[in-house]
Design a binder for these strands. Structure first.
Lengths: 358, 358
DNA sequence: AAGTTCTCGGAGAACGATTTCCCAGATCGT
DNA sequence: ACGATCTGGGAAATCGTTCTCCGAGAACTT
């Protein structure tokens, strides 16, 4: 029904399509009286501009492709929300693509988005190494911002959290609590989060116990692995288990409880990311919170800058500082998950703020 | 760079753009030799069709708008994954819109998607009543399928889970386990899930205890409310708390643990949805699993049918049967969350199946 | 053998906006 | 008062496809 075009508006207001376009886009001054007539015609007809036609002519679709490794990873929903929010204020739409954690699929999705003429891409790369080809190729065609995970140096703009600083926060916290025999349960593979967090642990753990560097076990970012890892480190009688993310920490916590180990009395457990679930276990997981809203805002800003012309310039990297969230899994100063202070920070645990950081 | 158009291909292969279009789209038979030349030219030039131009001409963008109440609700990520997967096989892209659980925002997002000429809409309405205006208006312009929640009768095609059957499964389970004094903790408001689950409880609870209908408390779908609700029902000394969704159940579980109540010994707790977290608490939450993959597949099918012409026809509703997942919160036959059988079903707890239901 | 269908290919009109020219009249400068 | 600039507006090209005509020749039909 609503097949109202510029021509219709032009006809009704008694002027040409060019003029109508001009008053709507404000691309050139138009006489006051004419503008009035045009505007009257516009909302008398209920005219809605056709984005597709506009896109064809102006070579800009106003859409951004968002490529995620796996939307079901509990860390991403919040990121998606913040990103859509940030981009929507600039009248951009987000086309979502899920990669099933597979670099092949990722490459295919990126290609599909490019074929759809997205104006830019936001990519959380699946793998630090195996994603690099597809990403660099894409970056050559449209502005591209890497998010949360890196993907080789200088490939594209990127905004990431400072993993090393986060792990350091954890180590400092454990040291202050008197823990001396930590171990690390991380993820194998070349994903940047896995690599950076492990490296940071290895370089910082010496402060706790200069002689025994603490065992390091590598698996994957899953609850299952967290459970399994506990059995592999118990023989070393650690007094703290530093996990590379919250899923691992949650798994570890489960297994420890099952074994009847006192947490945090006998062993402290820490995670990374601060996914909603981390505040709901018992005890709550001490973890490193990623500044998701800032991550999103910064990515949007970088994107805007590139879209506003700034084609050249070397790729910038914004590194954001994380925050330590102390909960019951590492200290008894803090009560269980039902504690108001720690229990209330799950995003969906209360009405969302209408005007967040922005 | 890749500004290769049909014209270029036509020029190189020595024929007209019409012919090239035909061989690419297969819209009409083309001579074998000509087709060969065209194809050679196509991949010698690396031609990629321009979706925008195609969309303008054919009045179909190949994009579907997906409107969600709140992506951070842990029930949706899986749904999003299945939907994108299902739609991608038909070469459709998904534009995501988050509503912040607000009907106004929802209306605005729907409008924006319509302006972008999405081919169809998938909507999980925010509110059974206050979403109806925007949804009906949208349904008049494009095919629209309601998902997971209803939105008034006959407004559009919809695919939902049978909430009543789900609650009945729970009640049967509790009855079989000998529970006789249940109570219900649900959500106020007119969201269809809230209404239907509450109604089903009220109509089915008589079988447990014909004299005392069991107390009903209404709040919202949140962990916080689950915690609070426990304090409001404890005076009635229930032996089972039937919660309207998993978040509430998790909250209840936390509070009960904090109070030192034995679950499931003294009180059983049940949820609804089977979000990933439900299998990770201790004890695991007995809950009703929504058949998310089927939900998505069915929605995709409905959409395809409408997009394939079938404009007329009354709106159909597909109602899918849920499945009871028994975990430790309602029976001692089932061990804790670390139990392999109950702990392994979180979607992101293992590598995703490459070829699921389909 | 003439008429009829069939097949393959080209020319060109849409699709609905933006944008570049170009022109008429008003305003300005000297 | 006359040329130069400025201003508001229209005609038409353009973006890259798809699709409708149209026509020329080959293949049938009778």
């Amino acid at each position: 029904m609503a097949e109202v075009t510029l021509r219709d508006v032009a006809r009704l207001s008694g002027c040409s399509v060019a003029t109508v376009s001009r008053v709507l886009a404000g691309s050139r001054p138009v006489g006051a009286e004419t503008a009035r007539r045009v505007r009257a015609a516009v909302d008398s007809l209920g005219y809605r501009p056709n984005h597709v036609a506009r896109a064809l002519r102006s070579r800009s679709t106003g859409t951004i492709g968002l490529v995620l490794p796996q939307i079901t990873n509990p860390f991403y929903p919040t990121l998606v929300r913040e990103l859509t929010r940030a981009l929507h204020t600039h009248d951009r739409a987000v086309i979502l693509a899920d990669c099933d954690d597979d670099p092949m699929t990722e490459a295919a999705r990126i290609d599909a988005l490019l074929a759809r003429q997205v104006d830019a891409l936001l990519v959380v790369p699946v793998d630090e190494k195996r994603s690099v080809a597809a990403v660099t190729a894409a970056a050559a065609r449209v502005p591209l911002v890497l998010l949360d995970r890196g993907c080789g140096p200088g490939v594209a703009d990127s905004v990431v959290v400072d993993n090393a600083a986060g792990i350091q926060l954890v180590l400092d916290h454990l040291a202050a609590a008197g823990r001396r025999r930590p171990c690390f349960v991380g993820a194998a593979g070349t994903a940047s989060a896995a690599v950076e967090r492990r490296a940071a642990y290895e370089s910082g753990v010496g402060a706790l116990d200069p002689r025994a560097p603490g065992r390091v076990e590598l698996g994957e970012f899953s609850v299952e692995w967290g459970r399994a890892a506990v059995d592999r480190v118990r023989a070393h009688r650690p007094d703290a288990i530093v996990c590379a993310n919250d899923l691992i920490a949650i798994g570890a916590l489960q297994r420890l409880r099952q074994l009847g180990v006192d947490v945090p009395g006998e062993i402290a457990v820490t995670g990374f990311d601060d996914i909603p679930m981390a505040s709901l276990t018992d005890p709550g997981v001490t973890t490193v919170r990623q500044p998701v809203a800032e991550l999103a805002a910064e990515a949007a800003r970088l994107l805007d800058r590139r879209l506003a012309g700034e084609k050249a310039g070397p790729s910038r990297t914004v590194r954001l500082g994380p925050e330590l969230i102390v909960r019951g899994s590492s200290t008894t100063d803090c009560t269980g998950p039902a504690d108001a202070a720690s229990g209330a920070d799950a995003a969906w645990d209360r009405k969302p703020a209408k005007n967040p950081v922005s």
